[in-house]
Computed example of a mutant assay.
Amino acid sequence: MTVQNSAAARAAALRAGARRGLWRRLLALLGVRTAGVRRADSQAARWQHGAAGEEATARMLTALEARGWVIRHDLRLRGRRFNLDHVLASPCGTAIVVLDTKAWHRGRTTALVGGRVCCGAEDRHGQVEKVAEYARLVDRALGLPGVAVWPLLVVHGSPVAGGYLETRVPGWDGPVYVLGPDRLLPTLAGAPKARDPRRAAQLAGRVDSVLLPYTERG
């Protein structure tokens, strides 16, 4: 399964942009990589790495559809430039999951250090704060009383200490969970206690009416 996402599109755009123009195309055909091309390729590789993580998450999430979850990928809020990697509407119709995918260094463990999420020695808590902010904005945009919005972050590559982390961030009233891929499906599959197809369909419809497909220009 291949999932088209903005990270992959951005990687392709960087590579193509660095080779635009007759002289640059000629150099590329000759196998010559200018400093600009090398820089663009390095940036593109990072975007492609993130795209691979998002695609891996998307493949995993398809298993939840049989359980009644409605899953959308690569969305945005009207008037906002950031993208939402994955948004899930629960089969009970009372919860939305705003899920962000990260692909961090395989040789470093993701753990809590002084209450902050770190990958090895690198502080990554700012990215946890971002997904909580995304959840807050989605909650406000949906405007659905009685519907909980959960911010989650799944990390590929870097092993997550204990399989999952629970942390808090300013401005969000509740925990934010950071999960390893092996904990993602059990966590989500075990969350709904009941199914309500009618309410779930209404919730999914609201998501589709409020959140838009992400494009580079936003």
Rank of each mutant, 00 (worst) to 15 (best):
G174Y: 12
V113C: 07
V178W: 09
C119K: 04
V138H: 03
A12Q: 13
A95N: 02
H156D: 01
T187P: 00
A52G: 13
G93R: 13
L137S: 01
A7F: 00
R38G: 13
S6M: 07
A121E: 10
R195D: 02
G21H: 09
A132R: 13
D139A: 15
A148N: 04
A204H: 12
V149D: 05
G114Y: 13
R15M: 12
R168N: 12
V113D: 07
P175W: 09
W69D: 00
A18K: 06
T101L: 03
L26R: 02
A148S: 07
A66C: 01
V147C: 06
A16M: 10
L84F: 06
A13L: 06
R59P: 15
L27S: 02
A141K: 04
V160Y: 02
G146M: 04
G107E: 09
T167N: 12
G162N: 13
T57C: 15
V87Q: 08
G146I: 01
V131F: 01
I96W: 13
H105V: 04
L75C: 03
G93V: 11
R124Y: 03
V160A: 02
E133M: 05
D139G: 11
R20I: 02
V128A: 07
G36T: 09
E55F: 03
R106S: 08
K193F: 14
A9I: 00
V160G: 06
R80H: 10
A121P: 02
V154T: 15
A35D: 15
R195W: 05
E216G: 11
A161N: 07
A148G: 04
G162D: 06
L179F: 05
L188E: 15
D173A: 15
T187C: 03
Q48I: 05
T34C: 03
L142D: 08
V169C: 04
R217L: 02
A63V: 09
V32S: 05
E122A: 11
A35G: 08
T109H: 08
P197H: 12
V87T: 06
L212A: 12
R24A: 11
R80V: 00
V3M: 07
L212C: 05
L64S: 14
A63Q: 14
R10H: 02
V98I: 14
D74A: 05
L179N: 11
L22E: 12
T2P: 00
W104T: 05
R20D: 13
R206C: 15
N83E: 01
A9N: 00
A8Y: 10
P159N: 13
L14N: 11
R195L: 08
G163F: 03
A121Y: 06
E122G: 00
V87N: 04
Y177P: 01
D139I: 08
V147Y: 04
A16R: 15
R140A: 14
P159A: 09
V97A: 07
E54I: 07
P159E: 12
P197T: 11
R76Y: 05
K193A: 15
A16D: 15
P192G: 10
I71F: 07
T215W: 00
A11P: 03
A103K: 11
L112W: 09
